[in-house]
Design a protein around this nucleic acid. Sequence first.
DNA 1: CAGATGACTCCCA
DNA 2: CTGGGAGCCATCT
Length: 131
Amino acid sequence: MSELRDDPVFYGRVHTLVRQIPPGKVSTYGDVAAMVGGGSDGRAVGLAMAALGPDNADVPWQRVISRDGTISTRGLRQSELLEAEGVTFDAQGRVTMARHRWAGPDAAWCAANRYTPLPPRPPEPEQLELF
DNA sequence: CAGATGACTCCCA
DNA sequence: CTGGGAGCCATCT
């Protein structure tokens, strides 16, 4: 019985963390990898996302995007799902990271589940669209 | 164990 | 903007 995709421990940790991302917020592959820890990186997280199946329908994979706020997937309507959750995009079709970037789960949750909190990041000035 | 694959990220021309 | 190359990791053959 290996129907489950959570067999590998790493995948399970990634999926668990992605489930914590609230609607309207997004995170990046690199950030997820940093929180999962273990020296993993964004590429490994991408694998965990690619391995998602019907069993992981409860994982909001669409909230995990590239560092630049761009959508890596093609043909999966990821941007539409995000837009439906209230995520905004700029004129260049990228997610407004300064506004929707997820700072990570609660510190207590991180400690309880052995996840690494994201390092504090100075608030980036949201760029206004100039006409 | 080596090689290939992939929803990454950074740097440079 | 596009393209190429390098470094990184997890999983499957």
